[in-house]
Amino acid sequence: MPEWFIPFLLSVVTASTPFVFAGIGELVVEKSGVLNLGVEGMMIVGAVSAFAVGVTTGSGALAVLTGAFAGAAMALIFGVLTLYLLSNQVATGLALTLFGLGLSALMGHGMVGKTFAGLPHLEFPLLEQIPVIGPLIGTLLLGHDVLVYFSVVLMIAVGWFLNKSRAGMVLRAVGENHNAAHSIGYPVNLVRLLAVLFGGAMAGLGGAYLSLVHTPLWVENMTAGRGWIALALVVFASWRPARVFVGAYLFGGLTIMQLHAQGLGIEIPPQVLAMAPYLATILVLVIISRDSALIRLNAPACLGKSFHATG
């Protein structure tokens, strides 16, 4: 096993985790029938808030919570505007992204040049001492920061919630046909607002992961389009949490792989390599989701439509 292999795997995990959070959060939002294009804006506000709290208090837990809370606060603006004031979801989502980028730049003033020590890692020294496979297991499964484990739990929990729990069924019903859901007495807008808040919190968490773990610093616009990739992942993963997870790791993995390939002098033009994560992720997700009937079944029928209770 080459020496760079284990650090390589670690880089993949850190590069992929923000997409898992933001993508799964957005998946829940879309399943409730709301399209929030403001993921990038919520992520960046989560990133700057988490970083600010992390640097001032030194507490990782507090920083992470603040990131999630800030993302949810941004989502609240979106929720009130689109659900109760019936503004256009696409336009409001875009505005939320622009607002978030500007707001975060303002909030980040004075945060320059500070760094954060990082989040605690879980260590299992005994398991890592197993010869040969020990280090590999250690890298793959153990020794990550807590948020990585949480992202796996999140994927499983959201999958269970949407498919097995009663509340999840209600959420999906609202996303499929809000009029029918309303007529049998479900609080459509409340359900959607909660979904939007959850999505915001997860996007904020994804942002927090960037500014606390991936590159523990603050610079303007540091999300650099990751929110948009998370949005795309949801669609290409045909609204399945496990596929969002696979897509996120595929994208993160290929991004890191192409950087390593360049360093190793593999003779593929870097433009092609740079394109590879996007192409391959789309391709793989399109292939595993190629059953168009299933996609129609998975796509929330009321996605992006405003609900206004009449009578």
């Binding site: 650090p7 991936h214 590159t215 616009n221 650099a224 991004t255 890191i256 740079a274």
Partner: peptide, 25 residues
């Protein structure tokens, strides 16, 4: 000199990942 192209002028995450890849090598 080992060169890694990130195809961007500004993407902190990717720049850091590229730097880490170079350190690993």
């Amino acid at each position: 000199v080992k060169v890694v192209w990130v195809s961007s002028w500004f993407d902190p995450g990717k720049e850091a990942d590229a730097a880490k890849a170079l350190v690993d090598q």
